[in-house]
Design a protein around this nucleic acid. Structure first.
Lengths: 225, 225
DNA sequence: GAATTGGCTTTTGTCTACAGTTTACCGAGC
DNA sequence: GCTCGGTAAACTGTAGACAAAAGCCAATTC
């Protein structure tokens, strides 16, 4: 057997360019989330293709995927439009997110090992110092990483995939809000870690639920403001 | 105004063929769920195209969508393969389904009107008589309709969309099981309706949770059998 | 003056063709 | 007899071209 003689990691998978549609997909998603492409905007295939230096086909395939994931609306014989979030939809999305994240917290409490908990604490520390430095982008990124890590510790791939989709869309809707919730968020994260470390499923669920619900509350206050 | 002079219904929407990719998508999904295309099977684009009488492009787009929804795995430069469910994944999928359905039940209890409850009872009656007649296909279909109706009453579109995906995959994995759970399932449905009618969110959640968990249990017993 | 109809432009939907990769098979060499 | 190298076939990835549908604007008619 050949593989026995190969040390792990010496073959770094020699990264290939990968399918164009993937890169187009990521490029478009980036443009949408950064609001370079604004909600309601008509996405013309030939324009995008020319702008990205590829043909229409990869663009089409990327748009298809963005459509199934809810980022663009694909009106037949008319083209693709960046999805416009409604208040109602945003609220429903948050409801679902709360549900998924809370379950993830419960599973994490049930399954997480000490290594995982250590990783969470590390992320938490990183996030807190980012808050202290006022590095907003890093705060947001670390926050996402923290939630992703909790998902990973939950050990449910299906759940993780769904939550990944939902989370990303939530972050898109709520970017203004996310930037406000600085330090308080990380205090709650600490409490979540404690619950997970204590293997207390019920408490982990509840802390996470309160955490995400807090986000929604902040959002609705924004309207009033 | 012209439309005033036109009786309703005389123009029956003049159903358009609709985009080819849609029909190809549905055709393939049908073939997969009915096991005409079996897990692990290599789907060759040109073959499918020829078989369906279209070109490769619509087939590709359909495969893309099936990929993002988890029905096929799209290995780069190698093609599409019908997804092979693992035991672990099936279990995780059921966990998620339980979660989503339970939440739907809670929301339905909170929001449903008397009309909705009547609709549920009607479906329930239909399902019970189907069981009595031994019409297995109708039982399965009515069961799906019942869950869909609960989702609809919950009034959360995002949740409904996610649950729709998950449910369909669960049904694919568990078709043998679903055919066994005949009458018992509908008894539980009755209890769910009662909880919803009573506006008892907690009880509705719990009944639905028990209901879907029961499905999982039946599945694992199948292994032992 | 307003509504409608006709043609024109733009954009999508589909098909065909070509290039790049991977896989499998077959033969030669050790 | 087994392994390695080369060759060929098949399939995917991408590009370009054509046809159909939708939207828009102007001309025309009541």
């Amino acid at each position: 057997m050949l593989s026995a003689g190969l040390p792990q990691g010496t073959v770094p998978k020699l990264e290939r360019p990968g399918p164009l549609r993937e890169r187009v997909y990521e490029a478009l998603l980036e443009l949408i989330t950064t609001r370079a492409l604004r909600p309601g905007q008509h996405l013309v295939e030939s324009e995008l293709a020319g702008h990205l230096g590829v043909s229409r086909q990869p663009v089409r395939e990327a748009l298809q995927r963005l459509n199934t994931e809810g980022w663009v609306d694909l009106r037949p014989a008319q083209g693709a439009f960046v999805h416009e979030p409604t208040e109602e939809e945003a609220d429903q999305l948050l409801t679902v997110r709360t549900l998924l994240e809370a379950e993830a917290a419960r599973l994490a409490a049930a399954n997480a090992g000490s290594a995982g908990i250590a990783a969470l604490e590390e992320l938490c520390t990183k996030g807190e110092s980012a808050v202290a430095d006022g590095d907003v982008d890093l705060v947001v990124a670390t926050n996402a990483a923290f939630h992703t890590k909790v998902m990973e510790l939950a050990g449910n791939v299906v759940l993780a995939e769904l939550a990944g989709q939902v989370d990303r869309r939530v972050r898109w809707y709520y970017t203004p809000v996310a930037r406000q919730r600085g330090m308080q968020s990380w205090i709650e994260h600490r409490r979540l870690i404690a619950a997970i470390a204590a293997r207390d499923e019920a408490r982990a669920t509840e802390v996470m639920r309160a955490h995400t619900e807090h986000t929604r509350k902040t959002y609705h206050e924004r309207e009033a403001g």
